[in-house]
Design a protein around this nucleic acid. Sequence first.
DNA 1: AATTGCATCGTACAGCGTACGAGTCAATCG
DNA 2: CGATTGACTCGTACGCTGTACGATGCAATT
Lengths: 232, 232
Amino acid sequence: MAAKRSGAESKGSGRKGAPPQSGQEQRSETTLSLERIVATAVELLDAEGVDGLKMRRLADRLGSGAMSLYWHVDNKEKVFDLALDSVLEYRVPPGLVASEDWRRDIVHMLEDWRASMLRHPWSASLLPRRALGPNILIRLELLSKTLSGAGVTDADLNVAIWSLWNFVIGATITRANFEFSDDDRAAAQQRLTGLSEHYPTIERSRLLLDNDWDGAFRKGLDFLLDGLAPRR
Amino acid sequence: MAAKRSGAESKGSGRKGAPPQSGQEQRSETTLSLERIVATAVELLDAEGVDGLKMRRLADRLGSGAMSLYWHVDNKEKVFDLALDSVLEYRVPPGLVASEDWRRDIVHMLEDWRASMLRHPWSASLLPRRALGPNILIRLELLSKTLSGAGVTDADLNVAIWSLWNFVIGATITRANFEFSDDDRAAAQQRLTGLSEHYPTIERSRLLLDNDWDGAFRKGLDFLLDGLAPRR
DNA sequence: AATTGCATCGTACAGCGTACGAGTCAATCG
DNA sequence: CGATTGACTCGTACGCTGTACGATGCAATT
């Protein structure tokens, strides 16, 4: 019944002004807060993956009881939402403001996006299923503004944004999930070679052995941008 | 200990030759088989989504005990694998063999791919996390062969395939998950309008209200293909 | 008649998310 | 000063999950 907490702000003061504690910093070991919960959830997700995030385990890491989390957070889903958005923050680099080279700006932002997600491989597969948090919207807004300034017509703008979104999401999810060990990849190609009568072309191009993901992302992005706004 | 069953073939005969039953068709109501399990899993997934697939519920639909499934299937993960690949079969249309218009062929196959997944919205988000089944490989092979025949150089081939893959995966996952009700979408745009000082451009282009997904897919695909193999 | 091997299922267990209500403690109020 | 309030914590419990294990049935073979 109680209204509890709601938004994601709750900036300052977990405990009013200052606790009458001895040490210079209060026992953050025992004080729960939304920020600490989200930060710890990210740690746990990094360490154990999506399936490794259990409320009990999260509480253990925080040194609290499992049910204490529910004062700060509605349910486990919200933990995912918050962890995801917290990982997608974008700090626009100084040189990028009012840059002349719109293409470079976009590539930079999208490569940073991808890199952020690959640093937290659980985030990519979560992204499409979650609400659009503020950090995501900031990136979309930046994308939109830059493309618009680059001459993409209003009629094509949404298509262009979604195309780039699709490309980044697809590339990153795939990359994050297809990261076999070398053994796995060799085995896959082995299996493929055995069936090379069925799949001769992808066998010949060694599609499944190619692991230059960064290069493929960069090149593919160039192709897509060529299509969206042909260099003249 | 027992070896049980392994592969995904197990084509004919669930029960030797022919059962000495009276009716023309045996009591398929009570006979379990891999095919029936997979088909029913797809039904259940369609009806209840990824989280709705529980082994007990699946067994209920099959009129069997929950543990009986484990004779035919290693574990729940395998059920997902099989359900996914079963949904991605591609029947190459007759006119497409030795077609002159490679671009049309690719668009057809990819639109069919997307449509197949949207018919089973759970499949899109599953795809990147699962092993590449035969039906997926068939599509990749076709893609590869067509692009190669269209003049894409070997050096660019893998990049082109992954770019198209990324685009299809990203578009479909997004489409499948962002399918709000009209109310949801209105609410999202409402929230955005309230914050229009922060996101003026995407607010203006009504990015979140645009629901011409099919058109956006088609147009974006065209842009990408333009980039990959410029029409001369 | 005895044996084998495929197939089914009842029971049981550990682990999950979280509802519920009791507990603690600092700030506030009369 | 004692009483009250409200923010916060947590122990217990419940229903549900995937699946390990072993008992059971039954057709084909010996």
